[in-house]
């Protein structure tokens, strides 16, 4: 395919994975891709059951291997487009392949989103048709999906190319409609849901912070110090009172010590544990060591 690359314009950069628009080379690549894809699908469908696990294991390993190599392989220097040795060749190939592999993942996710929407429509559609309990809410949900899709798509059409900047200056019917639905309703409902947390924090703290043991007493005392340290006016008063005695007795100093010397190292330690756990989980998934986890 080198002849394609040599004749190609500078932008967009051409490589093994793409081709110039409407050229025979690109069509050949598309056809090879389609044939390989169908062959793979048919092969998987007709593969004997005992072969399925080795196939899945191989695919998982290869997919993981790409990311491992991508992470570990040395990068080609800035501005290098033609490899001068094998290391640079692999580095450049990996660089070209990265957006393609990411696209694979994005396309797969898009299909999966379709399945997700199917789940929603199927559950709520059934409830609506059979007029089960709360069917009105299901109806509102489905109606909202349809309206949002229409306005979202129409808005997207008007923003194509130079439209985006024009819409910023003079929004049209579809743009205003989408803004009303998205900014005027969805965003505000999001904010309302978020603000519920204030109420829940109060009721949870009232219920949970009880002096039942030494540990809970320590927890409550430190929590009180940190909570008071957020109230600037109180800190100001207490600090002024403590200043003549000792700087170490200032509330801001004590709260700072709790944050810097107790809380931060604890968070780091927990994060180390979580990181190592994710690493172990990752290696088990990559090498297919898990056999369905706890489901046996």
């Amino acid at each position: 395919m080198n002849f394609l690359i040599a004749q190609a314009p500078a932008t967009p950069p051409l490589n093994f994975w793409n081709g110039d628009n409407a050229t025979a080379g690109l069509w050949i690549k598309i056809i090879i891709g389609l044939v390989l894809g169908f062959a793979l699908m048919i092969g998987l469908l007709f593969a004997p059951t005992r072969m399925r696990r080795p196939i899945v294991v191989t695919f998982t390993f290869l997919a993981g291997l790409f990311w491992m190599v991508q992470w570990l392989w040395p990068r080609a220097g800035e501005g290098v487009t033609e490899p001068t040795n094998a290391t640079e060749g692999v580095a450049l190939w990996l660089k070209d392949a990265l957006p393609v592999v990411t696209d694979f993942a994005n396309i797969l996710t898009a299909f999966l989103l379709g399945l997700g929407i199917y789940s929603l429509v199927s559950i709520h559609g059934k409830r609506l048709i059979k007029k089960q309990t709360d069917w009105v809410f299901s109806g509102i949900l489905l109606l909202s999906i349809v309206i949002m899709m229409i306005f979202g798509y129409a808005d997207w059409l008007t923003r194509l190319g130079e439209g985006a900047a024009k819409v910023e200056l003079v929004p049209g019917f579809w743009n205003r409609g989408r803004d009303l639905l998205f900014d005027g309703m969805l965003q505000q409902m999001d904010a309302a849901m978020f603000s519920l947390i204030a109420f829940f924090i109060l009721s949870a703290a009232y219920r949970a912070f009880r002096i039942r043991s030494i540990e809970s007493t320590i927890l409550l005392s430190t929590a009180l110090i940190v909570m008071i340290s957020i109230m600037g006016a109180i800190v100001f008063m207490l600090d002024s009172a403590a200043a003549p005695v000792s700087n170490n007795l200032k509330l801001s100093e004590i709260a700072g010590w709790i944050t810097g010397s107790l809380q931060t190292p604890a968070i780091r330690a927990i994060n180390f544990g979580v990181g190592v756990g994710a690493l172990a989980m990752g290696i088990r998934l990559w090498l297919s060591l898990d056999r369905g986890g706890v489901s046996g």
Partner: peptide, 14 residues
């Protein structure tokens, strides 16, 4: 921790 009966902390989850 404030609202649930049992909580797995950090890598206990793994």
């Amino acid at each position: 921790i404030a609202a649930c009966d049992y909580v797995l902390i950090g890598d206990e989850f793994y």
